[in-house]
Design a protein around this nucleic acid. Structure first.
Lengths: 237, 237
DNA sequence: CGCCTACTTGAGTCGAGTCAAGAACCGTGG
DNA sequence: CCACGGTTCTTGACTCGACTCAAGTAGGCG
């Protein structure tokens, strides 16, 4: 199908958007489409780096496991996110699907030769990596300085923004991750996450339809709490 | 002076090591050498990105300030570290010198044209950025899952490794940062950091000569605590 | 010598973790 | 359709570790 990419949710993603329709068809010919069930792993942290991926649909969590059982989630990724780049011999995170997922898979060696053919690709991948640094620094900032309710407030606004990029802006939004995932992302326990949700609900900052559908009722208060877009400087909102 | 670079502490850094002596002389001609006093800022987070830097000597902290006064240190950088790459219009961190510092400064526009002249440079900068991601993820993991004493144990082993790359391996090592800096790096308070140091000293895992000179006395126990190799010893027994 | 800053130590409080129980939700199979 | 078991989420009671406030010590520098 030559129309594969034109209909893809990731067509306007940072990676794919640099290519013309002709170019991306060639790129797609090199790709293998991977489908993963919810809960399954696309890749493991100890795997040798041989493939890279661009997510077409679904969502996943990048996580790292400690030997004592502790888990830290490094990022939640959506359609259009590019993963698999690493500086070492192995990915240093595992990628677990939150919802059933499809992704374009390229051989890492193919990516290297594509760099030669399309120099703008290497530049773009470079930009993507730099953006990852920003995102992860935001997370670091939140983990280091905020209290539990503030963390949740920040998290909700953060996910709402990500989700809006997929579904479009709307009054309420849907989260693909469980309370445990949220806890592992923010360095909290499930109980604390649950209590923070309850507190925000009782104080009428948000309302919760089913467990994964959130409506922001008092954006001003929530923003004040979460300090979203308030890390002192004027970065784009 | 054609011998400038050959004597530089950063000659074998990730950035400079890809170049021959002839090439690096040309690179150095484009550079401006910046000198910064301890406590002064090399760049501010809100500055537009116009220059990039490779540290020749000294040490600095990359930090972000919140409007409420909270501060999060994102990284400690030493000779050989390359900084200034950003995905946005502004650096998203400030760089404060911990000890008097010298760094090679290039115009960001010059870097772009150097990419064309030396494709291996762009690849290397890309690798450096990817390594930054790994480092920040390590920090994220520590912030999210460890207790204060474990954080300090991890931190000491971490800094020892970094310091050894500059001074060479040795029984004891020197830290350029204050207790407040350590607290801001690990998401703790000064008092908690101080108590953790005391606890490690009393339990004879480390000894402290002057406030910034640390000797590791019981590496096995410290490693077990910090989780550099083995899981943290559980206090939940 | 005295001032200033950084660090240490102590006492008390509070927030988040732990342990435990119960409620809501889900898929499965009768 | 409902009963059932497993999972996820919520809520409660309690504990403990890190923060806060406050005082005191050690160096560095005039």
């Amino acid at each position: 199908m030559t129309t594969q990419c034109t209909q893809c949710q990731a067509r306007n993603s940072p990676l794919c958007s640099v290519f013309t329709d002709t170019e991306i068809a060639a790129l797609f010919n090199l790709a293998h489409v991977r489908r993963i069930e919810a809960g399954a792993y696309l890749l493991h942290e100890e795997d040798p780096v041989r493939q890279v991926y661009n997510i077409s649909s679904g969502a996943l969590a990048l996580e790292r496991l400690a030997s004592n059982g502790a888990k830290q989630i490094m990022a939640f990724c959506y359609a259009g996110d590019f993963i698999g780049i690493s500086s070492g011999p192995s990915y240093s995170v595992s990628a677990r699907a939150l919802k059933s997922l499809t992704a374009c898979q390229w051989q890492e060696t193919d990516l290297q030769s594509l760099y030669k053919q399309y120099p703008k690709l290497e530049t773009r991948v470079h930009e993507i990596t730099a953006r990852v640094v920003e995102a992860i620094m935001d997370q670091l900032f939140v983990l280091g300085s905020k209290k539990s309710v503030e963390k949740i407030a920040w998290f909700l606004l953060f996910i709402e923004t990500k989700q809006a990029r997929i579904d479009g802006a709307s009054k309420s939004f849907n989260m693909p991750m469980t309370r445990v995932d949220i806890a592992d992302y923010l360095g909290l326990t499930v109980e604390t996450v649950s209590r923070a949700f309850t507190q925000l609900r009782i104080n009428k900052l948000i309302s919760i339809t089913d467990k994964w559908t959130i409506t922001v009722e008092d954006r001003k208060a929530l923003t004040a709490l979460g300090g979203y877009a308030t890390p002192a400087l004027g970065r784009k909102g």
